[in-house]
Computed example of a mutant assay.
Amino acid sequence: MSDGARGHSRFHAVRSRLEAMAVEPGPRGWFLEFLVFGFKQGWACLFGGLMLALLLGTHFFWPDDAPLHRYDAITIGAVLIQLAMLAFRLETPKEALVILIFHIVGTVMELFKTAAGSWQYPEASLLHIGAVPLFSGFMYAAVGSYIARVWRIFDFRYTGYPPAWTSYVLAAAIYINFFAHHWTYDIRWFLFAATGLLFWRCQVWFRPLHVHRRMPLLVGWGLVALFIWFAENIGTFARAWTYPSQNDGWHMVGLEKLGSWYLLMIISFVLVSLVQRPKGRSTAP
């Protein structure tokens, strides 16, 4: 058995033991379920967590006179992380394909946004396209990786999910608006309203332990967007990228960015839904 297969088997052995534990009614049972929920969430965040560790580690410890640019080291590290995710079977080939698409979608957006002055990459690099170092696409890929993994690990099921084609149209409109609002009217408030109209009845059912729990999908997206905002603050603190307002010193990214991340979440979710087809609650075991 390969090291990757062994690592994959160990995780599933731990997960199986946790899920086999008896859950007592009351606070002790709820606490155990909460612990397993946290364990699964942490496992789903593996790609993003490793990327943040890479950003912070190179920020604090990368020598200024190193022969390899820090940004290039981050890019190489990100590639190795992605290869390891596949080698250890932590992502399926189909999930990796969707993440690659998201990587390309994110890089195109980065090229446009940096040219428009929305944000910048202050350090030099050899591995870049235009003003965008290649590691930037992996930050978007980390979001896609999380959604794909959390969907599978928590066995997502849905009630009230709208017709799939409507989500595709919504995601396309959101992506176009990220570019078009620089020349025309910003329709993000219309997009928020359309999102609410389409998904206000949708419940996501997730299984932390033995039974499926439910949450409004709109709330789930909001929580994930909030944690992405926290990660963005870590990224800008590590000088992986900066906003113009941070040129004179780091400060927290404004809360208004939560709206942008919320909309980006929808694009990510829809891309993953191309592989992880939304299943109805009635098909749950």
Score class of each variant (00 low, 15 high):
residue 83 L to W: 07
residue 49 G to N: 04
residue 139 M to Q: 15
residue 76 I to C: 13
residue 97 L to W: 13
residue 123 E to R: 08
residue 112 F to K: 02
residue 87 A to C: 06
residue 99 I to E: 07
residue 113 K to D: 07
residue 77 G to Y: 14
residue 56 L to R: 03
residue 110 E to A: 08
residue 155 D to C: 00
residue 49 G to V: 05
residue 93 P to K: 04
residue 60 F to E: 02
residue 51 M to H: 06
residue 62 W to R: 06
residue 164 A to M: 07
residue 139 M to K: 01
residue 57 G to E: 04
residue 102 F to W: 09
residue 75 T to H: 11
residue 162 P to N: 12
residue 104 I to G: 10
residue 116 A to K: 12
residue 167 S to A: 12
residue 175 Y to R: 02
residue 118 S to I: 12
residue 75 T to Q: 03
residue 149 R to Y: 13
residue 172 A to S: 13
residue 54 L to V: 05
residue 116 A to E: 14
residue 123 E to G: 05
residue 59 H to T: 01
residue 164 A to I: 11
residue 107 T to M: 06
residue 98 V to G: 11
residue 90 L to R: 12
residue 112 F to L: 01
residue 58 T to K: 06
residue 52 L to Q: 08
residue 119 W to G: 05
residue 134 L to W: 11
residue 124 A to Q: 15
residue 40 K to V: 14
residue 118 S to H: 15
residue 147 I to P: 07
residue 103 H to M: 09
residue 167 S to C: 11
residue 87 A to I: 07
residue 65 D to E: 14
residue 59 H to M: 04
residue 41 Q to C: 14
residue 155 D to K: 08
residue 76 I to P: 10
residue 54 L to K: 15
residue 94 K to F: 13
residue 89 R to Y: 00
residue 41 Q to R: 14
residue 143 V to M: 03
residue 86 L to G: 01
residue 111 L to V: 10
residue 176 I to C: 04
residue 161 Y to V: 04
residue 111 L to S: 01
residue 110 E to H: 04
residue 128 H to D: 09
residue 92 T to A: 07
residue 83 L to M: 11
residue 177 N to Y: 02
residue 111 L to M: 09
residue 102 F to E: 10
residue 110 E to Y: 02
residue 159 T to Y: 08
residue 111 L to A: 06
residue 47 F to Y: 13
residue 103 H to G: 03
residue 99 I to P: 10
residue 80 L to W: 05
residue 43 W to Q: 00
residue 102 F to S: 06
residue 78 A to Y: 06
residue 66 A to H: 08
residue 60 F to T: 09
residue 159 T to C: 09
residue 107 T to D: 03
residue 128 H to W: 05
residue 122 P to K: 13
